[in-house]
């Protein structure tokens, strides 16, 4: 199967701090890869390097055949193919849900307003929020906000979606709706890279689990294997720890 994401030997320094120390990650089309690891292991940094929100200090990153680190790459065009969902939603508070979703459609894809709104509405429909189109983020629950954020990303019809702890800022009773939206996205065939501690979701939906520690991929495999019979001591320790929660 063709790989959508190919990251090889990715390094990232923050000053003297060596946060990614040669990470390799390939994600096949329609695959859902789960990334787990202790706090500070570099999971967010890795995701942010994939769409170049962070500038890697070394390595190669290709997404959908585009060399992300080539100076000649039009990064704004490349990013249209990579949706991203953040832990803290990052919705634009001065725009309605519809406005949030439609902004890039209008300014990046240059669609006329009516068409952009129509596509935005369809994206909101996919996360079951068509009836909240006119609401501002401040009038929505955390779970609804996160679903709007998902709609904002999928409205551009990306080739891959990156999720950075999409449910960890949510009250427990709101997690389900977001996971449901992600599950439906997965069923529609979206390629996804998910950083999360939702082990139940990982067991049910992930094709592969990647365990990171100290800026390196330590272990990877199918969820049954990584969760049930981890090979590495560090993985075992981490899984024992999160299972206790």
């Amino acid at each position: 199967m063709a790989a959508i994401v190919r990251a090889h030997g990715v390094h990232k320094h923050f000053g003297a701090l060596h946060v990614l120390r040669g990470v390799d990650l390939e994600v096949a089309e329609r695959e859902l890869v789960f990334v787990i690891g202790p706090s500070g292991s570099g999971k967010s940094t890795l995701l942010r390097c994939l769409n170049r929100l962070e500038e890697p200090s070394g390595g190669r990153i290709e997404v959908d055949g585009i060399d992300m680190l080539d100076r000649r790459t039009d990064i704004n065009r490349a990013r249209q193919r990579i949706g991203m969902v953040f832990q803290s939603f990052n919705l634009y508070p001065h725009m309605t849900a519809l406005g949030n979703v439609a902004l890039a459609l209008r300014k990046v894809l240059k669609l006329p307003r009516a068409e952009a709104d129509e596509r935005a509405r369809a994206a909101l429909e996919r996360v079951n929020l068509a009836d909240r189109a006119g609401h501002y983020p401040g009038q929505l629950s955390g779970g609804q906000q996160q679903r709007v954020a998902i709609a904002r990303a999928i409205a551009l019809e990306p080739r891959v979606m990156l999720f950075d702890e999409p449910t960890s800022a949510l009250d427990p009773e709101l997690v389900g709706g977001v996971l449901q939206a992600m599950r439906e996205l997965r069923e529609s065939g979206m390629t996804m890279v998910v950083v999360s501690h939702e082990m139940g979701f990982a067991r049910a939906a992930a094709d592969r689990v990647v365990f990171m520690d100290h800026g390196l991929v330590v272990e990877e495999g199918p969820p049954e294997a990584v969760f049930g019979a981890p090979r590495e001591e560090r993985t075992r320790a981490f899984i024992r720890q999160i299972d206790r929660h």
Partner: peptide, 10 residues
């Protein structure tokens, strides 16, 4: 806010 906007290609 900027990161969200840039991630959608703005």
């Amino acid at each position: 806010q900027v990161e969200a906007a840039r991630s959608t290609g703005l």
